[in-house]
Design a protein around this nucleic acid. Structure first.
Length: 248
DNA sequence: GCGACAG
DNA sequence: ATCTTGTCGC
């Protein structure tokens, strides 16, 4: 995949905020242009996470057939976070390595399922929005815990939802993906709307709380981060050897 | 001022 | 995110 837009990665909070301010107006909330045929999950794992700028990170992208949820392609990349963990600026830690993984992808997914928030962000520009603007591909955020907002408890059944409001706006939806599990928070990223984002996540979470995309991406980047990589569920091999080789 | 705070 | 054993339940 090639990027539609690029920008230097900031080193300070002030620079990061400026980047968000500049790109935020580019976000477009519209229905998905067509039913997704290929959906991709993205995630990042850390080696001994400290929340510091020099944390070693590994990113993974796994592309699935939307109908069968079978993996069709995957890509990984390793590197350094380059930015400390700051709520609201979280994207600057994970986007650099995620983008490098995406650039190693030959296919172009119809939607990118990001691990984190989209519009449900203090400046309405979470990681999913940011990645959407950089790639020009529809994105959504599916987070395990909310970052902000107010909502009511959704019903107990799979598929139950409740809108998340913040400062007078509907910024996300809590979605119960399985009966009896804690809801996930879904928000639109770019080139998608909340209804479509919710539908995509629910359809991708057929068996577990989290969509299959993020589950597979999570396992893959964790394997890479620990230098494992032998024996994935589908029998595909991943890089074997030392974790984070001296060349990156 | 105090507490909360995606991963 | 990551550090970590057993344990309760379908």
């Amino acid at each position: 995949m090639r990027l539609q837009r690029e920008h230097p990665w900031p080193r300070t909070e002030a620079e990061a905020l400026a980047v968000q301010e500049e790109l935020r107006p580019l976000v477009r909330l519209v229905p998905l242009p067509r039913p997704p045929r290929l959906i991709a999950g993205l995630d990042v794992a850390y080696a001994g996470a400290h929340g510091a700028a020099d944390d070693r990170v590994a990113a993974a992208v796994v592309v699935l057939d939307a109908a069968t949820l079978e993996p069709v392609e995957r890509a990984t990349a390793v590197g350094t976070a380059g930015f400390p963990y700051v709520p609201g600026l979280f994207a600057f830690r994970e986007l650099p390595v995620l983008v490098r993984a995406l650039e190693r992808l030959s296919s172009v997914p119809d939607v990118l399922l990001c691990d984190g928030q989209g519009l449900a962000h203090p400046r309405r520009f979470g990681l999913a929005c940011h990645l959407g603007v950089l790639t020009g591909v529809p994105t959504l955020g599916v987070a395990k815990t909310p970052l902000l907002g107010e909502w009511t408890e959704p019903g107990p059944e799979r598929g139950a939802t409740a809108d998340v409001h913040d400062r007078g706006e509907t910024v996300a939806r809590v979605l119960r993906t399985q009966t009896g599990v804690k809801p996930v928070t879904v928000s639109a990223g770019h080139l998608i709307d909340l209804d479509d984002a919710t539908a995509v996540v629910l359809d991708a979470a057929r068996r577990y709380r989290l969509p299959e995309t993020t589950r597979l991406a999570d396992r893959l980047c964790r394997d890479v981060a620990q230098g494992e990589g032998v024996g994935t569920p589908t029998g595909v091999s991943t890089p074997t050897g030392v974790s984070f080789p001296p060349g990156s």
